[in-house]
Simulated scan of single mutants.
Amino acid sequence: MQETYRRSADSAKGRQRRAELLESVTRDLAEHGLVDFSLRRAARAAGTTHKVLLYYFADGDDLLAQALLRLRGQRVGNALQAVAALPSGTLGDRIRAIWPMLEADATGLRVIDQAIGLAMYDPARYAHLAREAAEQYLAPLTGLLPPEWSSARREEVANLLLATFRGFLMDWRTTSDTTRIESALEALARAMDREAADGP
Rank of each mutant, 00 (worst) to 15 (best):
P87C: 02
G89R: 10
L91N: 06
G92F: 06
R94Y: 06
I95Q: 00
I95D: 01
A97N: 10
A97G: 06
I98P: 00
P100E: 11
P100V: 08
P100Q: 07
M101R: 14
E103D: 03
E103N: 02
D105R: 14
D105K: 05
T107N: 09
T107C: 01
G108V: 03
G108P: 09
L109K: 01
V111T: 12
V111P: 05
D113R: 07
Q114P: 03
L118K: 09
M120R: 12
D122N: 13
P123W: 03
A124K: 12
R125D: 06
Y126L: 02
A127P: 00
A127K: 09
A127Q: 13
H128G: 11
L129K: 04
L129H: 05
R131P: 00
R131Q: 14
A134D: 14
Q136N: 09
Q136I: 00
Y137F: 15
L138D: 10
L138C: 09
P140S: 05
P140A: 03
P140N: 07
P140I: 01
T142Y: 08
L144Y: 07
L144G: 05
L144C: 08
L145A: 02
L145C: 06
S150K: 08
A152G: 04
R153F: 04
R153D: 13
R153A: 11
R153I: 00
R153E: 14
V157A: 12
N159R: 15
L160K: 04
L160G: 09
L160Q: 13
L162I: 00
A163D: 11
A163P: 04
T164E: 09
F165H: 02
G167H: 05
F168P: 02
F168R: 01
D171T: 15
W172I: 04
W172Y: 15
T174H: 11
T175N: 12
S176Y: 10
S176F: 09
T178N: 07
T179L: 06
I181N: 04
